[in-house]
Amino acid sequence: MKYFAVLLPMADKEKSALYRPDHLAFLEKMRDEGHVRVNGKFTDGSGGLVIYRADSYEQCEEFVKQDPFIVEGARDYEIIEWEAVWNED
C-alpha cells in the first residue's frame, strides 16, 4: 500500500462553504474504509491536505475524483506520492 499527499487548493470559496458538509462526510467514509489516513484544512484558508492510502496513483485519483469538493468544482487537486515514516506511540 502506498501513501499519497493530496493538496486541495481553494478554487471557489462559496462552493467550498456550500459543499463542506458533504466533503467531510466523504472523508469520514474514506477513513472508515481505510483509504484516508489523515486530513485537515490549512489555517490560512487556502485549502487543505488529505493523506490517502492506495495501491497506485490511479486508484488514489479515482478516490479524489469522488470528493464532493472536486465533483462540484470547489477545489482543485494535486496528488504527490509520499514515502511516509510514522512514529507509532
Rank of each mutant, 00 (worst) to 15 (best):
K41V: 14
S46F: 02
G47K: 02
E61K: 11
F42W: 08
H35S: 13
N87E: 13
A17V: 15
E14K: 11
G45K: 00
A74L: 01
E62A: 04
D89V: 13
G40Y: 01
N39F: 08
Y19W: 01
F26M: 08
R53V: 09
E88D: 14
E62I: 05
V64R: 08
T43S: 13
K65P: 10
N87K: 11
W86E: 15
Q59R: 02
Y19F: 06
R37S: 14
D32G: 15
R53G: 05
C60A: 06
R20N: 15
R31K: 15
V6P: 02
V36A: 04
E72G: 10
V6S: 02
D76W: 08
W86R: 13
Y3C: 07
Y57V: 00
M1E: 01
A5Y: 06
L7Q: 12
R75L: 01
E61F: 01
A25Y: 15
G40A: 07
R31G: 10
F69Y: 06
M1L: 10
D55V: 00
R37D: 15
E14F: 09
G48W: 02
V6L: 04
V36N: 04
H23W: 05
L18T: 10
Y77P: 09
F69L: 13
I70K: 03
P9I: 00
K65L: 09
S16P: 12
H23F: 10
L8T: 05
E88P: 12
F69H: 03
D32L: 15
A74T: 01
E62N: 03
R75S: 11
A74Y: 04
I51N: 08
I80E: 11
D67G: 01
R20Y: 14
K65E: 07
E28P: 15
C60Y: 05
P21Q: 04
H23E: 00
S46W: 02
G73Y: 09
M30G: 14
F42Y: 12
A5V: 08
R20S: 13
W82G: 03
D55N: 04
N87D: 15
V71G: 11
E83T: 13
F42S: 11
Q59F: 07
M10A: 02
I70W: 04
R53H: 03
G73F: 06
D55E: 11
R53M: 06
L24W: 13
K2A: 00
Q66H: 14
L7V: 08
L24N: 12
D76P: 06
I79R: 05
V85G: 11
P21M: 00
Y3N: 06
A84E: 12
E72T: 09
L49I: 06
H23L: 00
F26Q: 07
E72P: 10
Y57E: 00
Y3L: 08
A17P: 12
V6E: 06
I70A: 05
Q66E: 13
A11F: 09
M30Y: 05
D44R: 04
R75W: 05
A17H: 03
E81Q: 01
L27C: 08
L27H: 14
Q66P: 02
L18R: 11
L24M: 14
D12M: 04
E78C: 08
E28T: 15
V71K: 12
V64W: 03
L8H: 07
V38H: 12
A25D: 13
H23V: 01
R20D: 15
E58P: 05
E78D: 08
A84D: 02
E33Q: 09
D76F: 15
R37P: 15
M30H: 12
M30T: 07
S46Y: 00
A11M: 01
S16C: 10
S56C: 03
